[in-house]
Amino acid sequence: MEALQGLSWGIIAPIFIIQLILVIVALIDLTKIHQTNGPKWVWALVIIFINIVGPIAYFIAGRKQA
């Protein structure tokens, strides 16, 4: 982990902020939406545990557009 000491977190922080916004928005939408393709709790796990791709996958495939 010593190699990670040299990073300046101020520069990298925006990446984590974007990921966080995506996760939060996806979760808020998940709680509000009536029905998803597949069980909701699976989507919750996907959104939380899969980096960046999880929320995108939810927005593309998970929402039932009715």
Binding site: I15, I18, D29, I56
Partner: peptide, 25 residues
């Protein structure tokens, strides 16, 4: 309402950020 106006730009910004950063580090 389907948040496309939010997540599509965020995805592009994400790659706009990560590409210079990964090359640099």
């Amino acid at each position: 309402r389907n948040f496309k106006i939010l997540w599509v730009p965020l995805v592009f910004i994400f790659f706009g950020l990560s590409e210079p950063l990964t090359s640099y580090y």
